Amino acid sequence: MDTIRSVTVQSPGTIANLVCGFDVLGLALHQPFDCLTLKLIDRPEVEIINHDDYGLPTDPVKNVSGVVLLSIMERLHNGVGFQLISEKKIKPGSGIGSSAASAAGAAVAANMLLGNIFNKEELVQFAMNGEKLASGVKHADNIAPCIYGGITLVRSIHPLDIISIPAPSLFVTVVHPQIEVKTADARQILKKEILLKNAIKQWGNVAGLVAGFFKNDLDLISRSLEDVVIEPLRSILIPGFDEVKVQSKTAGALGGGISGSGPSIFMLSASEGIAKEVAQLMSDVYTRLGIDFHTYVTTINQKGIIQTEQ
């Protein structure tokens, strides 16, 4: 097997759900991203070194990247092991796909070291083990765009069926209030059953949003960015959410909502000028509320995880 000994990758943040597509839609961002350096070692174990201040576990069975690498080793049975040096820039609990960036980045980097022996669908399967550790559920709406790039639809988990969707040239504004909303906790507040009329409306919005992406129809995208199932429940966990959403749309944003399980909020815009104006409005809201925050004005990342150096 033709292998290299070390690889460094950038693993991007992602926005899951895209308002109405709970657990099925997601997109990759250019900013922020994690940096992961993975090295082959000649013993069957995983060694993790964290170059950040988040206090994440170094025990591989308790670490999102670690369980992914262990699952790859279990598949290979060849005595190979890995040393991972992780520099996270996506804060855990941010709602911008921090666990997905760790899990998917580890899977893709390992595949590069091993001569690209796995396809993208297999890499998603490996990375989903990390999401299960993080949230208790094997979901792929962050993992898929991280690995495939652009916008993805997870049509099915069993069997896994991922469709890449054309990504319009849109700008993405994200505000990350410096509070934590754990994915597992955000799932606990969701209802187990929903009204049929709400389900019908939600299906229409998901179909409309996907059609809008394919047709590059900004008006259809805007009309379809509506969630009548998840957002009404989860938004109560995010101070300032309603104000940010109303002001952003008034400023010309196409629409947006909760990024993943929150607390980050995202908005899509047709121009950089609107996206920057939205960022300022977001900043004004959280400054007034006295909550620390970070904002990003970025675009959709068409490539996903990339190698930066060898």
Rank of each mutant, 00 (worst) to 15 (best):
I258R: 07
I221N: 03
R155M: 01
P159S: 10
D292L: 13
D185C: 00
Q31M: 07
S11Q: 03
M128V: 06
F213P: 07
G21L: 06
E45G: 08
M128Q: 10
P32L: 10
K215M: 09
M128C: 07
E131P: 02
L220F: 00
A270H: 14
S259K: 04
G66A: 08
I147H: 03
S222E: 04
Q188W: 01
G240A: 05
L160R: 05
H51A: 13
Q10P: 00
G13M: 03
S169N: 10
T8E: 15
F118T: 08
P12I: 07
E193G: 04
V24T: 11
F214K: 15
D59W: 00
Q125A: 13
L190I: 11
T14R: 07
P12H: 04
N216D: 15
I85W: 06
S94R: 12
I162V: 14
K303L: 12
K39S: 13
N111D: 12
I41K: 03
F214L: 14
I265L: 13
V174L: 15
A134N: 02
E122R: 01
I96V: 14
I15F: 00
G21V: 09
M73R: 09
N63I: 07
I291S: 00
L25V: 02
F82P: 12
D53I: 14
I90K: 10
V246T: 13
I143N: 01
V108K: 07
P57C: 09
D141Q: 07
V172L: 10
V246D: 13
G262Q: 08
P239E: 02
I72G: 04
G204L: 11
V278M: 02
A253F: 02
A279W: 02
E47T: 13
A144C: 11
I90T: 09
E121M: 10
Q202H: 08
Q125P: 00
S224V: 10
Q10I: 03
E243A: 14
D292G: 12
L25A: 05
G240N: 05
L170P: 06
I117T: 09
F22L: 11
H139P: 10
A207S: 14
A251R: 02
G115N: 09
I48V: 12
S6D: 05
G208K: 15
Q307A: 11
A211R: 15
N119E: 13
G136C: 13
E131T: 10
V229H: 00
L268A: 01
K303M: 07
D217P: 01
E121C: 00
G13E: 06
P239L: 03
L36S: 02
T287C: 05
L70E: 12
E45F: 00
P177Y: 11
K245C: 12
D217Y: 00
I117N: 08
G304K: 03
E45V: 09
R75T: 15
Y54P: 06
S271P: 11
